[in-house]
Structure formats: C-alpha cells, structure tokens
Design a protein around this nucleic acid. Sequence first.
DNA 1: TGATCATATGGAAGCGCTTCCCACCAATGA
DNA 2: TCATTGGTGGGAAGCGCTTCCATATGATCA
Lengths: 360, 360
Amino acid sequence: MEALPTNEGDPGSTSSSTSGAEAAAEPHTVTIYDVARAAGVGIATVSRALRGSAPVADATRAKILRVVDELGFRPSHLGTSLAEKRHAAAGIVFPDLSGPYYAEVVMGHEEAASRLGRSVLIQGTNGRTDPIAAARDLAGRVDGLVVLGRTVPDALVEEILAQGVPVVLLARPSVGNADSLRVDNLTAARALGEHLGTHHFAQVRFLGSPDSSHDVAERWAGIFQGLARSATRLDLTPCNLDEESGTRVARAVLAGPDRPDALVCANDEIALGAIVAAEEAGLTVGVDIAITGWDDIMAARHARPGLTTVRQPMRLLGAHAAEVLDERISRTRTTPRHEILPAELVVRSSCGSHPQGDRR
Amino acid sequence: MEALPTNEGDPGSTSSSTSGAEAAAEPHTVTIYDVARAAGVGIATVSRALRGSAPVADATRAKILRVVDELGFRPSHLGTSLAEKRHAAAGIVFPDLSGPYYAEVVMGHEEAASRLGRSVLIQGTNGRTDPIAAARDLAGRVDGLVVLGRTVPDALVEEILAQGVPVVLLARPSVGNADSLRVDNLTAARALGEHLGTHHFAQVRFLGSPDSSHDVAERWAGIFQGLARSATRLDLTPCNLDEESGTRVARAVLAGPDRPDALVCANDEIALGAIVAAEEAGLTVGVDIAITGWDDIMAARHARPGLTTVRQPMRLLGAHAAEVLDERISRTRTTPRHEILPAELVVRSSCGSHPQGDRR
DNA sequence: TGATCATATGGAAGCGCTTCCCACCAATGA
DNA sequence: TCATTGGTGGGAAGCGCTTCCATATGATCA
C-alpha cells in the first residue's frame, strides 16, 4: 500500500516509457522537465533561470540557457498562464458593422495593447448567432475587455465585471464601475449645426437612428442645438449606418415631397451612399444639395466633392482604451475613469463651402 | 505516513479552509471542485455532465446543472485548454501597413473563424520592435496561424510548422508544407495591361516596388505582359504602399521629364495619393492622365473620377484562410493546399474610360 | 572552532480541467 | 442462487508551469 504517485511496479504505467522509446511518434513538445533533466537541475531552477524570479548561479544559468537553446524549449503559454492565473491578453468586442470605423479602432487597440505586452483577441458580433455567449466566452480568455458600442448588454457587462475582468466601454455610457471612453459628439455636432446654420438652408434632414446608438443620439442632439438659432427646419429620417441604407433612404427622401437642402448623415458611409442617390437624382452635391457625414474615414477625404464631416480619433480611441485597461489589469488604478476625447469638424465642399485645402 | 494528497491533519493546509470562511476576500472563482462538492458528486461526473463526453444519469445531470447555474460556474478556459492540449484559437499576423486591405482580410477571417468555434488573436507588426518574437509568441497561443504577406520570414514559418502549428500563407509563396492562398494577380494585371493598351498611351509608369512584395511583383509582371503587344513604353518607379508615398512619388514623376500618360499604381492608396498629386499639377485625371490602382477599397469607389482598379476578394481571402486552416487543425487534411482566387478588373473613369455604371 | 546566515537549489503542491481505470450496483441469464 | 453484464460514478494521474518551503553548502562572525 506504499504505492505513491510515482511510477513503479505498475505494469500499465504510461509515464515510465516516456523517457525511453517513442522518439518518432509525435513531435513531442519539449517541456521544462526535459530541460531540467538535460541540464541536471530541478525544474524550479529552470523556471527561475528563465524568468529571473530568483537568483541562480551564473554557471547554472549558463548551462540551462544552453540546453534551452539546444532543445528549442519554449515555455507553454497555457502552463504559464494557468500557474500565473493570467492570460496576458485583452479582448475587444465590436458590433455587426464591418466598416472602417471599427476596423480602425481595433487596429489602434492592437498596436497599443501589443506594446503593453498583451495579445489581442477580437470578436465581432457580425453574423454570430449568439453574440452574448461569444462575448461571455471571450471574457473568460482575457485579462480585460474592451467593448465597442452596444454590442454587449449592460447585464453582461456587470457579470463580466463581477468575474473580476475589467471592462472599458467605448462610445457608450458607463455601466457599473467600468471605465468609459467617448468622443465628444455633442460639441462637434453643435459646431456642425452652427456651420450649417451659416448656409441658411431652409430644411435640413438628419439621416440616422438616434435610438440605435448613443453616439448617434448625441450627434442628433448636437445638430439640433447647433441649428436652434437659425431659421432652419430640422427633421429626422431613421437610417442604418451602412452605405447601402444611406443610398436607399436618401433616394426616398430626395424623391419625396419637401425635399431638404441638406442631408446630415449619422456617419460617413450613409453620407457616401447619399451622395450616390443625389447624383442619381441629377443633383450636384455641394451646390444643389449639401451632404455631411461623420467619422472622416478615408473615403470621405477622397470623395468628390470632399465630404464635410467630423473627424473622430479612431485609432487613438482604440489605443487609449488599451492604456486605460492596462491600469485596471495591473491594478495601478481601481476607480473608474471616464474620458471624453475631442472630435474635430472637417469642412470640405460637400456642404456647399469652398475651403482652402479641399481640392476642387 | 498515510498522508495522501487530501487535506487533513496538516495545519498549514490552505485548501481545508476553502469551503468554510474566506467569503469576502476575493471573488473566488468557482471551480469544478466547488460544483462537485455542492452537487455531492465527483469532479469527473461534473465534467462528463457538462461536456456530454460520457453518459450521466438524468437525475445526476439535472442536479449538476442546477448547481452550476446557482453557483454561476464557468469552466476555466486555461484549465480546459491545458487538459485538452488545444487553444481553440487561431492567430493572424499582418504587416505594418494599416490600410483597409489588411483590415478587411482580418475581419473576414474573424467572422469565419468565429463560426468555426475558434477565437482569433491578431498581431500587427506595426511598430513592434521585434515582430519575429511577437509572431513566435503568437504561434504558442494558437492552434493555427494565418500569415499575411512577408511579415514572417520563411525560417520562422518552418519553425512554427515544426512545432506542429499549421500555417496558412496569404499573398505569399508557399513554404514547407504550409497551405497558401493567393489572388491571381497575374491574370488580372494582364487584363489591366491589355485594357490600358486599348487607350494607346505613349508611356505608362508603374508605381510600386516589385521586390517588396510577391503580389506587387506579379502585378508588375502582368502589366508588362498585358502591354507587350502595344507600342506603349512601360517604366517603373519604386513606391511604398501608402497614400503619402503615392502623392510624393507621383509628384516627382509628374514634375520630371518624360511625363507618362498613365500611372499604374501597385495599390489603391498609392493611386489615391497620385490623384492628389495630379490634381495639384493641374491635370484632370481620366483626361490628361490615367491613374489606376489595385484592391478596390471603399475609397476607390467613391473617388472622383472613380478609380479603375482590380477588385481583390479581401474578406473572402480571410474567411477562406480560416476554413483551410480548420481542415489542418482538425486533421481532416494533411497535405498542403494551394489556392488561387480570381481577381476582377474594375474599369472606372480614372483610366480615361467612360464605363456605364460609373457616375460622372 | 562552533553557531549563524545568506545563497543556491530541489521537492512538491497547486493552478482547473479531462479522462483513464476501476469499483460498485442492480438487473439479467443460467 | 451465483456469476456475468451494462450502466454509473469516483479516484487519481496528468497537462506544463510557478513558487513556497525546506535543505544543503560555504562563508561569516564571535
């Protein structure tokens, strides 16, 4: 009954054959045990030598490093993470839309997170049958999570926070003690509204759905405020945030009665789609009708006429989220942080202006 | 000496206090042991009940599920992965450029991989001080890797393959027994060259660096072949793949002697940058000078004049990579697969044509 | 010269899970 | 009635690592 966990006696023991035969069967990953054996030391010493967590005699370290090199040992991330109880990874969840906005934020995040020594897991809710489950799963694989927009319901954010996983909310009101990062849509929208006011349009139409997104709601509110002093009439037509919807909705708006002088679109994709519709209708954008967007994506700059829009610091938003998250993960900070980044009005010709820089 | 691994006697035992006190200290993650204890069964049974890997009596299963729900148990990914020896994740490495092309491929990959039940880790080589180390690290965290372009040297690809991690190469010649996916640049470039031939330009200039990327090399070769039958002279000026370089290089080319009639650019960003330079020089694109791009990014479609380009199935490329990788990871296939996806010439007005669909 | 101490190192527990192996029990067949 | 069988379920090993604890070895101090 002295059968201790060591392999011995028991003929069925699998581990006893490990060191002997089996060479050709599998690539057999090199483990820390292999290194320890080859270097004639204990695994603890190997670990210490490799990570410098405790002093190791120079000679010993040198020998270990040599063996590591010879055997091509690479510590298993899983083993390390399990022992350390951390993933060294952050996750980012973004919504259905596959436009440039989200891509830019994600890329900006990756760059910054990578610099902070953290891998990045991405999770789009695009086409996922169960985005909730996907997000919950992701939360279990990372040390912190960035959530864009309304992808994840408040309850799930709370649940994830309760699990001890810090969350940074982007472009969305804060939940619990999650951090939040937003762009000052209101101020920029007000500026855009005021600018449009100087054009003395009779009728402005906002294309977008304020109740679909916090950002859009702010934009709508800001435009409203910015136009308040002018005699301009302002209406709203709901529209999804993609180009095709923009074309379709604009087409209907332009064909309907009471044709507006200006289309203020909730984002650039709608605006670019609206430009297509306007041209179809024989209108010259910037002359017969003004069209503005939001985000300043690449295509906005290259469209003709150049699209008047509001530039959002998309990459910065993603990058900053990584930093804010890092403070939480490293417990440098424990109280929530809420930041609002400025946005910048970019006037080009599509609204009827003729700015210096804009070609044509 | 009967001290088995169970907690008992030993006063320093930490695990003995686990069930009793300590409630408020830490969130204390619920483990499979907690569930087993609460349900009055062994952990093996809990595992079986949850994953259905072996039959469990209905009553037992029901009880376990109830307890799981009450305790809010979520299996640790780390524990599971370590035991299963798999990550349930794929990685994708992309190069420095942060343009829409890579973003699209990455997003397309995420969507497909997600559908296959695999999380996606992304790794840009942008700004990384040691992209090699980053890629190697990534390879240790995934079950399979997608590599875009020349980001990772051949030797490292071999090393990763040797570790047993399948690799899919995108837009790059195959290495070892890695799978590869490419777009048929040659055929499309030839078609573009031939199309340009019909315009009877005297002099065409290719902006791009064939030795920097396999894709660009193929484009250059195809253009050359496509123009071979015409009397057109073809030259090359090296150029990086970003917009700013496009503007700068085009500016120089247009100001220099021997001004070409057409600029064939290695990608859309260069072309869009070149359009800026051409307009600066007072030239009307599509009339005084032809400019073409490659990729058909969103901005190409919205530029005026519309940019003649070659449409690459970017999202499809990323998505298909996920599927090809999946076959390798699941060992459905063990021999390399090399595929070439078709690209499509998209003629708009920037080359001097006046296609039907193109507005203006 | 014996006691003390810092340093270097090994053993082993533990991170949370899966699964092999075996024991148990009730029902079945002889 | 006893042995076989199939259905359940528990124990424990093992995945690869980190780190606590204990020990051994010289070096240092009185």
